[in-house]
Design a protein around this nucleic acid. Structure first.
Length: 823
RNA sequence: GCCCGGGUGGCGGAACUGGUAUACGCAAGAGACUUAAAAUCUCUCGCCAGCAAUGGCUUGUGGGUUCAAAUCCCACCCCGGGCACCA
């Protein structure tokens, strides 16, 4: 029989759907639950290409493997359906975002179904459905009630083209991630989530996670914990004109208190509030105010591109005192100091900080060296930012700089001039979007009562149908134009009030979807406590590394919040994480429509079928690496599956012949022992490899086994069945088809076990080296003694040739591996 | 600039904890089957010298540690990803 994937794949997909073989029950007697989750796709208009499938195949292999291992596996799928691109496309093509989104969902569902994965489609969730976003809104209310959702006028990233505010994560190189146009700063009232209140916890929780080290490091850096000292610099004579406490000191934050003696000036950020308080004392107030106005006009991008310029203005008439040495030092305002971090003010140490060094040169400020490096390596160009021994630091001279940090800090704190503190780079999460296609924020503004929550029983706040969904020029959401939506009654006083018209960032929707999969139809809760307990946390989570500092961090925040509110008992949602590598086009470039190098699954399956595609994607290389697609390489995976089909024919023709003599010849007996060993080794290898996401070497082991079985004269049904079971996670359709004569589905069979005794080799090849070069190899039994081995080595003809007449200095013996004779 | 990865045949890639470098697959070449093609099967296949046996060289480059280095250490070059004035 010829291998006809198109025929058998469709057939089995139909049968699987009919028999409901992949429907997941919440509990199965005697089985442990296992949750294997894919990052659910965004329904984009281009559909999925072979690169997207890479992760989905991997997660399906894992899910199928654990299922055969006896676990009750949940492997669901859904769509992250709200978001900007739907609107952008809608505007571009003149289609309603909803129509566009649901058409894409239909197309991608078809593609995903052709994958033959064991998704439980009964649990499908779509985040733009009211019965889903009702709970997104509910979660917003819980955060609000806990003081973790708040409103603030913040300088936001404003994209003129998309007419919306972007999250920091959506700004790439000062440009809008979506449309690539310049991003400006604009102050807008926004809803924020206080993710920073979990900063410390999000950081420390990383330690125990089975995540790629890389990903953890990136999150750590993103959270950006810095330990240091807040130091107070007295303002000279300030008590003469003002009595306000706030105007007597300038507080700075530093991680390098050890360089305090080298602080030759202070710098305030343009936003610093003290500037207003000191107004009357600033001699050049006009200049200062002009400078501050200038910086406000600058975009973030301009600030970055001018990074080396280090502009700034001195506050003339103001002097501060360095508490370490009592020296009077000038005070500047400069935009290289950020208002949103630390104290919004710094002590400048030009000798040991490059930025301060750049600034000091421009403004002719004194430089005092206070750290001496172990090896004198000062250059005129660069500040020395490393550690060393203190100099020019009074009583601290000669002290190690690391030690000096705390010493100087404590010394000042005793005088009430310093305090230890910690700052994070992590900022609160702006979730307001001035867009139509998102979950409405369930808040109402009443002139009398202020902001009021929509009562929970009134949820969901439905997204009204809207014909004109284009954003407005004034930056307001298109919902602001829908009077029926906006005008409402105040839940408190019943008077006239207005609804919030912003919608939520789509990352809010995706921060909790894994909970919903456990209980997708629940009308009373986002998910029942019991179901959450059964299924979560997620055992294995598979998806792109690009979500490291966005989605993955937000999800960890939500989970912690829900734990605090006693809805769950764990704080980490994803125990194990794996990122699939990116599949590049055959030209080694990222697949993109404009480059014309996109490989669609359909173009591949037309010729080879989905099983070949699956096997090839797993075989190409390490799961997490990015690799180019090879239109020729896939040929090998196709041949592999065809060979399997031929083994089946071989088995059939064998059965029609009279059985061979039951007594094996001695040679054949030896051969069959060897084969048995290979079988057991393959079971072990494939099992271990799947567990560790090393799919490529698992398949190579299967190929070796198939090649061996093909060479065998006699193929036993046992061996053949074993092979089909090992194949089932990778090529589920073919394995199922070939299993047909043996009863119920191969996917319901138990995973084969191996005998550890049989895996172990009895013989090994001992490598004989002379001076580290391989000169001979001999077969010996495992566990051969050192003495015996050495004797054998010396008696080897080839070795003799090399050591004859030379003095043997030493013989190194590595058990079961090699002998190295040093002469 | 800083922080992570990574550099192995013509190509994708294997190689446990330092111990046979190049598994498996692709491409290529030769042959078998066939009227022919496709499919399939067998053999060759890192580089250099040699008919061969064999010998020398080889994991980005240069050094080092070791009986032994793709693997550990130092310096440098190149590629990919992330962050970016965070004091």
């Amino acid at each position: 029989m010829r291998y006809n994937p198109q025929l058998i794949e469709k057939k089995w997909q139909r049968i699987w759907e009919k028999t409901g073989i992949y429907k997941t029950k919440d509990r199965v007697k005697g089985k442990k639950n296992f949750f294997c989750l894919d990052m659910f796709p965004y329904p984009s208009g281009h559909g999925l290409h072979v690169g997207h499938l890479h992760g989905y195949v991997g997660s399906d292999v894992v899910s199928r493997y654990y299922r055969m291992r006896g676990f009750n596996v949940l492997h669901p799928m859904g769509f992250d359906a709200f978001g900007l691109p739907a609107e952008n496309a809608a505007i571009k093509f003149g289609i309603h975002p909803k129509v566009w989104t649901y058409k894409n969902i239909k197309d991608i569902t078809k593609q995903l179904k052709s994958l033959g994965a064991m998704y439980d489609w009964k649990r499908l969730i779509i985040t733009s459905e009211p019965d889903y976003y009702k709970w997104t809104q509910w979660l917003f209310l819980q955060l609000y009630k806990s003081g973790l959702a708040y409103r603030q006028n913040v300088p936001a990233n404003w994209c003129k083209n998309c007419k919306t505010i972007l999250a920091n994560e959506q700004v790439v190189d000062g440009k809008c991630e979506r449309c690539d146009s310049r991003v400006f700063q604009k102050n807008i009232e926004q809803w924020m989530f206080k993710i920073t209140s979990y900063g410390e916890d999000l950081l420390s929780g990383l330690g125990n996670l089975d995540w790629p080290e890389n990903t953890k490091t990136m999150q750590r850096n993103w959270i950006g914990r810095s330990e240091g000292w807040e130091i107070r610099f007295k303002i000279q004579n300030s008590d003469l004109k003002t009595t306000s406490q706030n105007s007597k000191f300038i507080e700075v934050f530093t991680t390098r208190a050890d360089t305090l003696f080298g602080a030759t000036y202070l710098v305030l950020s343009p936003e610093h509030p003290i500037i207003k308080n000191l107004k009357s004392q600033i001699a050049n107030l006009k200049f200062v105010e002009e400078y501050i106005e200038e910086t406000k006009k600058k975009t973030e991008r301009e600030r970055i591109s001018e990074a080396k310029e280090k502009t700034g203005v001195e506050l003339q008439g103001i002097k501060a005192v360095n508490p370490a040495n009592g020296r009077e030092i000038p005070v500047f305002v400069a935009d290289y100091v950020l208002g949103g971090y630390g104290k919004g003010a710094i002590m400048a140490v030009p000798a040991h900080d490059q930025r301060d060094s750049d600034f000091s040169k421009r403004h002719n400020l004194p430089i005092i060296k206070v750290i001496k490096a172990g090896r004198e390596r000062f250059s005129a160009e660069r500040a020395y930012e490393g550690e060393g021994i203190l100099v020019n630091s009074g009583e601290f001279d000669g002290m190690d700089s690391i030690k000096a940090r705390d010493r100087i800090g404590k010394w000042l704190s005793e005088k009430g001039l310093a305090k230890k503190s910690v700052y994070y780079k992590l900022r609160d999460w702006t979730i307001s979007r001035q867009r139509y296609w998102g979950a409405p924020i369930p808040m109402i503004y009443c002139k009398k009562c202020g902001w009021q929550t929509v009562p929970e029983e009134d949820l969901p706040v439905l997204l009204p149908p809207l014909k004109d969904f284009k954003p407005t020029e004034d930056g307001k959401s298109p919902l602001a134009r829908v009077n029926k939506f906006v005008e409402t009654a105040c839940p408190k006083c019943r008077g006239r009030a207005k609804r919030e018209t912003d919608t939520m960032d789509t990352f809010v929707c995706s921060s909790w979807y894994y909970f919903r999969f456990t209980d997708p139809k629940n009308k009373k809760q986002f998910a029942s406590k019991e179901k959450i307990k059964i299924w979560l946390p997620v055992d294995i989570y598979i998806g792109g590394a690009e979500h490291t500092v966005g989605h993955l961090l937000y999800s960890r925040f939500f989970t912690r919040f829900l734990k605090n509110k006693k809805y769950l008992s764990f704080s980490e949602p994803f125990l194990r994480l794996s990122h699939p590598g990116i599949i590049l086009g055959p030209d080694n470039q990222k697949m993109s429509k404009s480059k014309g190098n996109v490989i669609t699954p359909e173009s591949v399956t037309k010729k080879y079928g989905m099983d070949t595609l699956r096997v090839y994607e797993m075989f190409m290389g390490p799961f997490g690496d990015s690799m180019p697609w090879s239109t020729e390489g896939i040929e090998g995976s196709y041949r592999f599956l065809k060979k399997l089909q031929r083994l089946n024919s071989k088995l059939k023709s064998q059965n029609s012949k009279p059985p061979a003599s039951p007594k094996l010849q001695r040679g054949e007996q030896f051969k069959s022992q060897k084969l048995e060993k290979l079988l057991h080794q393959t079971i072990k290898k494939v099992s271990d490899d799947i567990k560790n996401f090393r799919f490529n070497t698992a398949i190579s082991a299967l190929m070796i086994l198939v090649n061996e079985l093909q060479k065998e004269k006699q193929l036993t049904v046992n061996n053949y069945q074993l092979l089909l079971k090992l194949l089932a996670p990778f090529a589920p359709h073919l394995a199922e088809e070939l299993w047909l004569p043996y009863g119920k589905s191969v996917h319901l069979q138990p995973w084969p076990k191996y005998d550890p005794k049989l895996v172990r080799e009895k013989e090994t090849t001992l490598v004989l080296q002379v001076n580290g070069k391989v000169r001979d190899k001999i077969g010996v039994e495992i566990g051969i003694s050192e003495e015996k081995a050495k004797k054998l080595a010396i008696s080897s003809q080839k070795i003799r040739k090399w050591i004859e007449g030379k003095k043997v200095i030493k013989i190194v013996f590595v058990p079961n591996k090699l002998i190295n004779i040093v002469i």
